[in-house]
Structure formats: structure tokens, C-alpha cells
Amino acid sequence: MPNLETLQVFATAASCGSFSATARRLGKSQSTISACIANLEIDLGVTLFDRQSKFPTLTRAGRHLLAQAEQVLMANDRLLRTAAGLQAGHEPRLSIAMSDTWQPDRLEAVEQHFARQYPEIELECLIAECEDLIRLVDSGRAHLGFVERQAAYPVGMVSQPLPTPNEMALYLAQSHPLAQSGIQSSAQLATIRALRLSTIHGDRPGPSGGHCWSAPSYLMLLEMTQAGLGWAELPCWLVRRYGAGLVPLPLPGWPRQVTVEAIWSRERPLGPAGTWLLSAILQAATPASPE
């Protein structure tokens, strides 16, 4: 019967794309990884990886069994989180990394309950976006994160979507001449400086001749937009709360829906306080059923 460590090696190898990369990620030798995969193939009676090319690729059976393995690992992760919530001890400090695409009133709704439940825990809230936020969680700097859904996450990271999406829209200062005359097409936006999100650890935008400015925070972009420096895509809740003087641009496809996901590392499971907070936020974010 395959054990959890073997299944983790299998899932990591499928994600990393090579046994050598898997070895580096898990801190093991490449021969250990190869032997682990070979033994798993013997136990299951199927070939999981095609080794004919330079890099091993999943076989048809491997792709099917990978989904099953990930379900087992997720079930184990849920088991560990539930067990952690039942333990008497708790973590002395809980760090949460939040994206401004996530409306913070969902955290505010449970903070008073959290303070009563865990009065001695130090709670730290960090603001970051996309790659920066993911790196905080992946490195262990933050225990739990809330980020706009990404196409892919690092190996070992668990994600769970929040049930209520948020909205993003395009905004321009009301005092801007084009806002007063009215923008009717995306082509008109091309004549105005774009203010874009650019994270510290993400890919840097190419040269734009000054036609595109960037910042790693939506709040900074909001302030730049208020100053009339250009247009920006911003979270609607942020504009409602802090964006005096901004107007939305009524272009096709906007506003757009944004799914926010809670993320944490399987290698560093949430403790009792983190588990409680995540459950409370998910419950607070769930729309009430109509009576």
C-alpha cells in the first residue's frame, strides 16, 4: 500500500517535470526519488512515467492516478487541519497575507470573535499581490494568504476558493478631460497613460516610453489615478471606500468578476488558530440562503 510520503514524491515529480528537480525540492537524492517512483510503479502495477525522452512525462495511467493521489493528499491535509483544531495548544503568532482584491470586511467580521477565541495570539496582517503574496506563504513568512486566483501555484501549496467573487473595474479621475468627454472604446484608452500592477517578484513590464507606469499595490495605483496620472484597473470595493473623485469607465466586459482563493502550504499545515480563522472567514463569505 503506497504511503503518503511516496504519493507526495509522485505528485511533486509530476509537477516539477524531472526527478532531479523533485530531489532538490524535497531535499533528497535523485536516486532516492527514482527508486521511490519505481517502487510505487511496482506496488500499483502500472508505469507512471515515460522515461524515453530527456524528461520523464506522465503516461495515461500516470495522469489518471495522479488525480487520485492528489485527492488522498488533500484528504490527509484536511485530516491534519481538523486534528490541529482539536489540539489544546496553539500557535503564538498568526500571519495573514491579503490581496486588495479581497474585501477585508470579511476578515473584520470575524476579528472580534478571533480575539475572544485566541486572546493571547499575535495576529499580523500583510498586504501583497500575486507573486509577492504567494512567495510570503511559500516561504513560511505568512501562514495563510488570500489572493486573486492564479493559473498555477508552487508545489505543496493548497488553495480553496472563497464562495463570493469580487469585482474589478477600470477607473479614471473625474477631473480628467477624457472622463468628462466620455470614453466609449478601448482605443481611446490607448491615448492615456496606463497605471498597472507590477509585483516585486513578478515579471517586469517591458519599456513603454512612459506610457505605462506601475506599482506593487492597488492602493498606490488608486492614489496615482486620483492624481490624474492615468487610468487603472482597481478593486471596486477599494474605490468605494477610498476612491473619491474616481469614475468607472463603462467599457464592454467591465466590471469583471474576480475569484479570491485562500492559500496555505501543505508542508506547514495551519495550526488551530489558523484553521479556526480560515473556517470562520469561509463561513462569513458564504452567501446566506434565501428563506
Rank of each mutant, 00 (worst) to 15 (best):
T286I: 09
G145C: 08
F114M: 09
S139R: 12
Q160G: 01
F10Y: 06
A232R: 01
R60C: 00
V260S: 00
T199A: 05
C130E: 13
T59D: 06
A128F: 02
R193D: 06
Y171S: 05
A288E: 11
G45E: 00
P252I: 01
F19I: 03
R196N: 12
Q180M: 07
A190Y: 07
L65N: 03
G202W: 02
L189N: 05
P2H: 12
W264T: 07
R268E: 07
T32Q: 07
R196A: 13
A13T: 04
A187M: 14
A11I: 07
Q160N: 03
E233G: 06
A288G: 09
V9I: 13
D43A: 11
A151L: 14
G182N: 07
A67V: 13
V72G: 02
L189H: 05
A97N: 03
Q117D: 10
C236L: 10
V137I: 06
V247F: 03
A38S: 08
Q68Y: 13
E167I: 00
E91L: 04
M157A: 08
G253V: 00
L238Y: 05
V247C: 06
M168D: 06
L66N: 05
N76G: 08
A11Q: 07
H143W: 03
F19A: 04
L58V: 09
H211I: 07
S159F: 14
I200E: 05
A109R: 08
R268G: 01
I42H: 15
S31D: 14
T101A: 14
R268I: 04
V147S: 01
S198M: 12
N39C: 09
W264R: 11
D77Q: 13
A88E: 15
V137D: 00
A169T: 10
F10R: 01
E108Q: 09
Y171E: 08
N76K: 14
C16M: 12
E233T: 12
A109K: 10
W237S: 05
R116P: 04
Q226H: 13
I121S: 08
Q226Y: 10
A215C: 01
A61C: 05
T82P: 02
G17M: 06
D203T: 14
E167R: 12
A244I: 15
L94D: 00
Q180G: 04
W213Y: 11
